[in-house]
Computed example of a mutant assay.
Amino acid sequence: MGDLNQQASTDLVDQRKGEYLLIRDAEDGQLGRFDKPLPCFGCGIGWFSLLLGFVCPFMWYYAAILYFRKYYHKDPRERSGLAASAIAALICTIVVVIIVGIVLL
């Protein structure tokens, strides 16, 4: 407890000198972990794959594989886009199976 008071007092002394203090959350040591923008023009791999999948549906399957391999554990911001692409891949598969079933029957 004494060390914490010593740290706080030196921070106050530094603040009075006009130096900036780094704001930290004592419980979350990874506060700045997700400060950098997402890949693929800032929208993330999942959303980029969803949009590009309308031109090349294999991108939906690529994102679905990333979703099922839990790529979003590296960056939780990717989870929604990867899930959307996995759903698009599922819908695409169902439509293709129905179309192939109608053509062959």
Rank of each mutant, 00 (worst) to 15 (best):
C43E: 14
L38I: 03
C40H: 05
D25S: 05
R33G: 00
G46D: 03
K36P: 13
G32E: 13
D35W: 04
I23G: 02
C43W: 12
A26P: 04
L31E: 14
K17N: 04
A26M: 02
K36E: 15
L22R: 05
R24F: 03
L31S: 14
L38R: 07
D28H: 08
C43F: 13
C43V: 15
P39H: 05
G42V: 01
E19R: 14
D25I: 04
G42E: 01
Y20A: 13
R33Q: 14
R33H: 09
I45M: 04
K17D: 08
K36F: 15
P37E: 01
R33L: 15
A26L: 07
I45C: 02
I23H: 07
F34P: 10
L38H: 06
R24K: 10
R33I: 11
L21W: 07
R33F: 11
Y20C: 06
I45N: 04
F34C: 02
C40W: 07
F34K: 03
D25H: 05
G18E: 13
E27C: 03
R33W: 12
K36Q: 15
R33N: 08
E19V: 11
E27D: 14
C40K: 09
I23A: 12
G32M: 09
K17S: 11
F34T: 09
C43R: 15
R33E: 12
G42Y: 01
F41V: 05
D35G: 07
D35S: 04
K36V: 14
P37F: 01
R24T: 08
Q30G: 08
G29E: 13
E19L: 14
G32L: 10
G29S: 09
E19M: 10
F41S: 08
G42D: 02
D28G: 00
P39V: 06
C43I: 15
K17R: 15
A26G: 00
D25W: 01
K36H: 15
G46P: 00
G32C: 08
G32V: 05
E27G: 07
G29I: 12
L21G: 03
L21T: 09
P37W: 03
Q30K: 13
G32H: 14
G44W: 00
K17M: 15
G32S: 13
G18H: 08
I23Q: 08
F41E: 05
G46K: 09
G18N: 10
F41R: 04
G18D: 12
E19S: 11
C43S: 11
K36M: 14
L21P: 00
G18R: 05
P39S: 04
L22H: 00
R33M: 14
I23F: 07
K36C: 10
R33V: 11
K36R: 14
G42S: 06
G18S: 12
R24Q: 06
G32T: 07
G46R: 07
F34R: 11
R33T: 03
I45A: 00
Y20N: 10
Q30L: 13
I45F: 01
G46M: 06
R24W: 00
G29L: 12
E19T: 10
G32F: 13
Y20H: 09
C43Y: 13
P39Q: 04
L31K: 13
L21V: 06
G32A: 11
C40N: 09
P37R: 03
G44C: 04
G44Y: 06
